[in-house]
Structure formats: C-alpha cells, structure tokens
Computed example of a mutant assay.
Amino acid sequence: MKPQDIIAGKSSLWIFGYGSLVWKPDFKYKRSEVGYIQGYKRRFWHGDNFHRGDDESPGRVVTLIEDDSASTWGVAFEVSGSQLEDSLKYLTVRETVRGGYITKMVEFFPDGEDRSPVQALVYIATVDNPLYLGPASAEQIGAQIAVSRGKTGHNLEYLLRLAEFMRTSCPQVEDHHLFAIERAALTVVSYLLATQ
C-alpha cells in the first residue's frame, strides 16, 4: 500500500503506534488516543540495523504477529490537512525504508466505554523481511537488546520506554512478553555493570 493510495480522498487519517511511536512520534498530529487493536500480538521479533543496532549487532524491535485471540495496546494519532502527507513521508523513511515495515489498515479501539472503533494505518514487519529475526527466548532477546546500539540510541532505551508507556498509560494490561524481556535485559545490564 503506497502513501498516495492511503491518503487518496481522505482529509484525515489515524496512525497506530505500538513501539517507538508511542513515545516518539516525531510528526505533527491533531490528537492522540490510547487504545488497542485486535487480532495481533506485539513481539520483539524484528531486527534493527539502523535505529537501535547495526549490521554487526542488530537490535531487536517490535512487530505485530497475527493471533486471533490477542490484542495490542498503543497510541493512535489523528493527522489531518498538511499533516497527512508530511507524516506519511516521514514514516515511509523511518518505518519502511529504514525499518522494512509494510502498511496495513486495522480497526483501532480507543480506551474507554462506548467509544467507536476507527480505521487506522499500522506498520508491520513480516517474515519475508531480511531483517526479520523471529522468535527467541526472553533471555536471548533481553541479552541482545542489552548490548545493541544504533543511530537513534541504545536498544535498551527503546525497551524501557515501551515498558514505561505500558505501565503508565495501560496499567490494566499485563504484557508478559514485554515485561519478561525487560527483566531479562536488566539482569544482563546489572551483570555487565557488576563485572566492569
């Protein structure tokens, strides 16, 4: 799905973030809403050799894996007018060119009672992406994150900020995958600091 196809005939668009976009959108938007999408689970199964790692030591970032029984919490941003084209140009470079993500439209459910879902654009990395790393144990993923760094910063920052967002904005949600990796990464960091 190309950006021009996405915005054809639209005056506004919702963009759903479930990784770094939840704390660092870096584009102008009209408003944002915390909420969730259904049918996907968030997993640290995608490699990153630009933002949070490099070719020798790729970082691990999140993607979405289809799972009918799952839901993923994050933030949706509404962009309108000139924000529409500007945000998609920026995200095409950040998520598609440098990250290898593709786009899909999903139903986003804003948090709160009696809220109607809206269609939202989401970026997903698939198994046919060369950067896709696939499943690994929380310990393996945490160890990889603990030592990886890219042009945007340390991979650990990405993990800790995502965990902080979930605790602050979605305290009712227990993200076992995310929190297990956070514990594993912090254990590695503590060990590395103790042995220096």
Score class of each variant (00 low, 15 high):
Y29W: 06
Y29P: 00
K30C: 12
R31S: 15
S32L: 13
S32E: 15
E33C: 07
V34W: 03
V34D: 07
Q38G: 08
G39Q: 01
Y40L: 05
R43C: 13
F44K: 09
F44G: 08
F50C: 04
F50V: 15
H51A: 13
G53A: 13
D54E: 12
D54G: 14
G59K: 12
G59N: 13
V61F: 03
V61L: 00
V62Q: 00
L64H: 02
D68R: 06
D68P: 04
S69L: 02
S69I: 00
A70S: 15
A70M: 05
T72S: 00
W73L: 04
W73K: 12
A76R: 11
A76W: 08
S80T: 09
Q83G: 01
L84W: 08
E85Y: 08
D86C: 04
D86R: 12
D86E: 15
L88H: 09
K89H: 05
Y90K: 14
Y90C: 02
L91I: 10
V93R: 02
R94S: 04
E95C: 01
E95H: 00
V97S: 07
R98L: 09
R98C: 06
G99K: 11
G99P: 14
G99C: 10
G99I: 11
Y101F: 15
I102K: 08
I102Y: 05
K104W: 03
M105P: 05
V106K: 13
V106A: 09
E107T: 09
E107K: 15
F108V: 07
F109Y: 15
F109C: 04
F109G: 04
P110L: 11
D111P: 00
D111C: 12
G112R: 09
E113R: 09
D114S: 14
D114M: 04
R115I: 05
Q119S: 13
A120Q: 05
V122L: 02
V122W: 04
Y123W: 06
I124Y: 01
A125L: 01
A125V: 00
T126F: 13
V127F: 01
D128L: 07
D128S: 10
P130H: 10
A136S: 15
A136I: 04
A136L: 07
S137D: 03
A138M: 03
Q140P: 04
Q140C: 06
G142P: 03
G142C: 03
G142M: 03
Q144L: 08
I145Q: 01
A146I: 11
A146R: 12
V147W: 07
V147M: 08
V147F: 02
T152C: 10
T152F: 13
G153K: 14
H154S: 10
H154R: 13
N155L: 07
Y158H: 12
L159T: 14
L160T: 14
L160Y: 06
L162P: 03
E164C: 11
M166Y: 15
P171Y: 09
Q172G: 10
Q172V: 07
V173N: 13
E174L: 13
